[in-house]
C-alpha cells in the first residue's frame, strides 16, 4: 500500500464526513453551495491521487493537474475552437432552429390544418439520424460552421416546436373568455395572454435544446470540418494519443454548456416568476 492510496482513503472518508456534517446543518442556505463545491474538490483530489498512486497510463486517464496544465497552455487554441464550434456552429443553429420552431408553433396555432401536416413532418425530421445527416449537410453547406449550424437546426427544431405548441394550447378557458368579452383582437390575445402563459413551456424547450445544440455542433465536426473546432480537435488529438487535450476540450464544453443552461434558467426565473413551478 503506497502513501498516495492511504491519502486517497483519508481524503475520501474525510470529505464524506465533512459533507455529512454540513448537509445536516440547521441553516439550509449554507449546504447549497458548499456541499457541491466540496464534493467536486474531493473528487478531483481522489482522481489525482488514484492516477499517481496506481500509475495509470495517461492515455487511459490523465491526472487533473495534467489536464489543467494542458488547458492553461492551450488557451489560444481552445478559444479558437470554442468560437468555431460553440459560437458559430451551436449558437447560430440554436437561435435559427428555436426561432423557426417558435414561429412554426404560432402558425400551427393560428391555422389548425397545419398541425396535422407540420407536426408529423417535424417528428420525421427529428427522427433522422445525425450521423447520417452530418456528411450530407457537409456536402450541401461546406466544411465550415454553416453545415454544423444546419445540423443543430435539425436537432433543436422538433423539441422546441412540440413544447411551444403545447404551451400555446394550454390556456385557462376563463382567461381566454375574458379576452373575448373585451373584444380583443387575435394579436392582442396572443401578446397579452397566450405568449405569457406559454412561457414556462417555451423555456422548457429552450433548456432541452441548449444541450442538444452543444452535442450536435461537436459531433457534426467528426464528419468534416476546417482544421479548427472542438469536434475536429477531439477526433484529431485522440489519433495522436494526446488525451489531455481531449479532456481540456471536454472541460470547455461542460463549462460552456452549464453556463448557457444557467443563463436560460436565470431568464426563465425572471420572466415566469408567477408560475407555481417557480414559487416555493
Amino acid at each position: 500500500m503506497n502513501t498516495y492510496l492511504i491519502l486517497f482513503l483519508i481524503i475520501w472518508l474525510g470529505g464524506w464526513w465533512i459533507n455529512m456534517k454540513i448537509s445536516n446543518h440547521k441553516d439550509a442556505n449554507l449546504p447549497r453551495f458548499i456541499v457541491p463545491t466540496l464534493f467536486g474538490i474531493v473528487i478531483l483530489l481522489m482522481w489525482e491521487l488514484a492516477v499517481i498512486g496506481l500509475q495509470i497510463n495517461p492515455i487511459l486517464l490523465p491526472a487533473p493537474s495534467a489536464i489543467a496544465l494542458k488547458f492553461s497552455r492551450s488557451l489560444d487554441i481552445l478559444w479558437i475552437d470554442f468560437v468555431q464550434t460553440l459560437v458559430k456552429g451551436a449558437l447560430s443553429g440554436y437561435i435559427l432552429g428555436c426561432g423557426a420552431a417558435f414561429l412554426t408553433a404560432i402558425a400551427i396555432d393560428k391555422f389548425n390544418f397545419l398541425k396535422r401536416g407540420l407536426l408529423p413532418l417535424g417528428n420525421f425530421i427529428s427522427a433522422l439520424p445525425i450521423v447520417g445527416m452530418a456528411p450530407i449537410f457537409v456536402m450541401w453547406f461546406g466544411f465550415d460552421w454553416q453545415s454544423k449550424c444546419a445540423i443543430v437546426v435539425v436537432m433543436v427544431y422538433f423539441p422546441m416546436l412540440v413544447n411551444s405548441v403545447q404551451g400555446l394550447e394550454l390556456i385557462d378557458p376563463s382567461r381566454q373568455d375574458l379576452m373575448r368579452t373585451y373584444s380583443a383582437s387575435y394579436t392582442q390575445t396572443l401578446i397579452k395572454l397566450r405568449l405569457p402563459s406559454a412561457l414556462p413551456f417555451i423555456f422548457n424547450g429552450l433548456k432541452i435544446c441548449s444541450t442538444l445544440a452543444l452535442i450536435g455542433a461537436i459531433v457534426a465536426e467528426f464528419f468534416g470540418s476546417p482544421i479548427k473546432g472542438m469536434g475536429f480537435r477531439i477526433s484529431s488529438e485522440v489519433g495522436r494519443f494526446a488525451l489531455d487535450m481531449v479532456w481540456a476540450e471536454i472541460f470547455v464544453a461542460a463549462i460552456a454548456g452549464c453556463l448557457f443552461y444557467g443563463l436560460i434558467a436565470l431568464i426563465e426565473k425572471r420572466t415566469t416568476f408567477w408560475h407555481p413551478s417557480q414559487q416555493k
Binding site: D172, S174, L178, T181, Y182, K192, P196, W274, H275
Partner: peptide, 29 residues
C-alpha cells in the same frame, strides 16, 4: 364593449400586478 365579466376563479393574470390586471382591458381598448 358593453360587458364587464367577473369569473368564478378571479381569472386574474398571474404575471400582472393588481393595477396591471386592471389596466389590461384599458390597454386593449
Amino acid at each position: 364593449r358593453q360587458y364587464g365579466y367577473v369569473f368564478q376563479a378571479a381569472g386574474l393574470y398571474p404575471w400582472r400586478t393588481v393595477s396591471g390586471n386592471i389596466k389590461l382591458p384599458l390597454e386593449i381598448m
